[in-house]
């Protein structure tokens, strides 16, 4: 089965809007999913400036799916969905 790719945006906006809390994923994801999920960071996914008036930072990409106003719970939920759990 293909791995689920999770990309956490660490751009300035995302980071101050709560992205810093998403660093917890670094502990949770390997524990919960082992090597089924690959976690990485991005300097800036560029999503905040596309739709800035309705900025919903922080953003996380789970495969191609964008999780806006991301929290640890929301990201895990999306991962579960993609894994078909």
């Amino acid at each position: 089965m293909a791995k689920v790719e999770v990309k956490v945006c660490l751009g300035t906006t995302c980071f101050v809007m709560g992205g810093s809390n998403l660093q917890e994923l670094n502990d949770i994801i390997p524990q919960k999913y082992g090597d089924k999920v690959e976690l990485s960071a991005a300097n800036c996914l560029g999503l905040c400036s596309i739709n800035w008036e309705y900025s919903k930072a922080p953003y996380v990409k789970v495969n191609e799916e964008v999780v806006s106003e991301a929290t640890v719970e929301k990201v895990l939920e999306e991962i579960d969905k993609q894994l078909g759990n």
Partner: peptide, 9 residues
């Protein structure tokens, strides 16, 4: 960076 002008920030 337009996103930095969001009043919520």
């Amino acid at each position: 960076n337009k996103a930095h002008y969001d009043p919520n920030l």
